[in-house]
Design a protein around this nucleic acid. Structure first.
Length: 569
RNA sequence: UGGGAUGUCGCCAAGCGGUAAGGCACGGGACUUUGACUCCCGCACUCGAUGGUUCAAAUCCUUCCAUCCCAGCCA
């Protein structure tokens, strides 16, 4: 199918029809002229390299890159690495890989916030000279206590009005490693009475002797996000800085920095709601907890909402992009139904995944009136949704495997698959009539017996009789053995984040089922470029590239097919 | 309690003064060599609640209610 191709599909050409409030704002900005006069729309995706990207980031990526595309603009990729104590190169590589996989490209516009440390330092000196920043010697605890409460203003730092020259000297010596970690900070002088805590003389530089993954040990002072981010945006000529809702309170500070530094670019911050999906957790902290407590098999466990996890599960980049496009963008805190993600997945896979027959829980079917030494072949379309995808040839003989679920010795009401006396079609082969079955000591059916109707070759009924059910099968002679991993949602709770108990208590005990005795039709080949398949009548499965080898096939169930059959109990 | 934001179908989401788009989910039916797909049909006399302005309000104004975010030297 095309899923292997679509891993490289250029997403920078899609998503031009949908619109949202951010687009409206930008349109207004363009119409107004002013600071956006003659500027091309320029956005950025600024992850901190301290963890793996998840589906929530995909939404942000889609908005950042998608908005640029929409206006024929540009989108940068920037590592927001201003806190070395949490960051690592391991993550920058993974982030780049995931964004590329999603189908977006930043061309040569890949940056690090740490590249701007010298300029940030100079700007900070300027702020001090303007009397807008000062070196403060309060401890973290003292600053917290002096910050005030919701209803009372903060108390000024003892050092708030120290001479400019003194602050300048101290700030330089902070940089030169003369003071201990945490002993001093550089603070912006703004408004201690503001209802917005971010404006109550925020710390903009801290002393921290941590090894930075890029600047190594060059710096021992690091800028804070609120101070650094607007400068990063300004330095890159960003016009629209898109971020999530929780930064709304930070916008006044963002604007304050832009206003008070000597820069040409005047970026505008616009906030949107981050993505929530039910039956999962999205915070980096909780995902890390799952990994570190071995509740999942690493960051790329197929049950994880991480992009590497979804990839291993078999999600396609196109389906994730489609999902992000369709959920829309607004300022309403929302939780999207997991079923919608699955819908977008099936939509893509149904169109593109090749079909193959596979038996998850095999029982043997013996055709008593089919000659032992007879064998024949049938042609099957690879994908009925796309006839151009061609045909394949499968073999057929006296014995094959069928699904346990497709046989009932005593049929339930409304069940019209195989049961003694009933007729069923073996997909593309013959119509057969069940005669009997064999059971083991525990009463489990081990063999089903049936007779085939030679007049129905190919599954056709020349006499025009209707066969209610068509079931899939795999020739026992040359079936390929495989392991199949079935996944269900990781949590049993709709909202594991907000339950009575710790989120880990809501882990679904049957989120993973390993089936070791699956039978797949012999046309499957390890060297095929196709990795995403629809197992006929069962669902979509992905050949796990890490777990599989030439003689050991491991499939992950990406998502089941919808099933409107409701057994009557 | 101060500041910031948000409230349109079970879940997303259009709507921007002219009489409630669409998608998902759900229910029914048609078709079917996938109980899939596809295709039909149904699914908010009502827009958090109140008053008010207007010939006309989900859209403007009052007041109220609910929910989310903020007191890191995290981002």
């Amino acid at each position: 199918m095309n899923s292997e191709k679509d891993n490289n599909v250029d997403a920078n050409s899609e998503n031009t029809t949908t619109t949202n409030f951010i687009h409206d704002f930008i349109l207004e900005d363009i119409a107004k002229g002013g600071r956006f006069e003659g500027k091309t729309v320029h956005t950025r995706f600024p992850p901190e390299p301290n963890g793996y990207l998840h589906i929530g980031h995909a939404k942000a990526i889609n908005i950042d890159f998608g908005t640029a595309q929409k206006f024929n603009g540009l989108c940068n990729l920037r590592m927001d690495d201003t806190n070395p104590s949490k960051e690592d190169v391991e993550y920058v590589d993974a982030i780049k890989e995931d964004i590329t996989w999603l189908g977006f490209t930043w061309d040569d516009r890949f940056y690090y916030a740490s590249d701007y440390f010298p300029q940030m330092f100079d700007y900070a000196c300027d702020l001090i000279k303007k009397g807008l920043a000062f070196v403060c010697e309060m401890t973290a605890d003292q600053i917290r206590e002096a910050r005030g409460t919701l209803t009372t203003p903060g108390i000024p730092s003892l050092w708030r009005n120290r001479p400019i020259e003194e602050s300048l000297d101290l700030f330089n010596r902070m940089k030169n490693s003369e003071f201990a970690d945490g002993s001093m900070t550089l603070r912006a002088k703004i408004d201690l009475a503001s209802g917005n805590f971010n404006m109550r003389d925020p710390v903009i530089y801290r002393i921290m002797r941590a090894h930075h993954h890029r600047t190594l040990d060059k710096w021992c002072i690091y800028p804070m996000y609120d101070y650094a981010h607007p400068i990063e945006d300004a330095m890159e000529g960003i016009t629209h800085s898109l971020c999530s809702l929780e930064f709304e309170d930070h916008r006044p500070l963002y604007d304050w920095v832009i206003l008070n530094i000597d820069c040409e670019a005047k970026p505008r911050q616009i906030e949107f709601a981050r993505l929530g999906i039910n039956r999962t957790v999205m915070s980096k902290r909780k995902l890390r907890e799952l990994v570190e407590n071995n509740l999942v098999d690493g960051w790329d466990d197929p049950r994880m909402p991480t992009l590497c996890g979804l990839r291993k599960r078999g999600y396609t980049p196109a389906s994730i992009r489609s999902f992000c496009d369709q959920i829309g963008v607004s300022k309403v805190s929302s939780t999207v139904d997991y079923a919608f993600l699955e819908h977008c997945l099936r939509e893509d896979l149904n169109k593109n995944a090749r079909r193959i027959m596979s038996i998850l829980n095999p029982i043997k079917l013996v055709l008593t009136n089919y000659s032992e030494d007879m064998s024949e072949t049938f042609e099957l379309e690879n994908n009925p949704e796309n006839i151009e995808d061609g045909y394949r040839t499968i073999t057929f003989s006296k014995e094959c495997y069928i699904e346990q679920d497709d046989f009932m010795e005593v049929p339930a009401k409304g069940y019209h698959r195989l049961f003694p006396g009933n007729e069923v079609r073996l997909k593309s082969a013959y119509v057969i009539r069940c005669t009997s079955c064999e059971k083991d000591a525990d009463g489990n059916v081990t063999v089903v017996y049936a007779e085939y109707d030679p007049m129905t070759r190919g599954g056709n009924t020349p006499d025009g009789r209707k066969i209610k059910s068509t079931i899939h099968w795999v020739d026992a002679k040359n079936a390929i053995n495989a392991e199949v991993r079935l996944y269900e949602s990781l949590f049993i709770n709709e909202d594991p984040d907000n339950g009575e108990l710790d989120f880990k208590e809501y882990i679904n005990p049957s989120s993973l089922t390993v089936l070791g005795n699956c039978k797949i039709e012999a046309t499957l080949s390890f060297s095929s470029p196709h990795k995403h398949y629809q197992f006929f009548r069962l669902g979509y499965f992905y050949l796990d590239p890490k777990a599989s080898s030439e003689d050991n096939f491991v499939f992950n169930r990406t998502v089941s097919l919808k099933d409107s059959y409701k057994p009557v109990k």
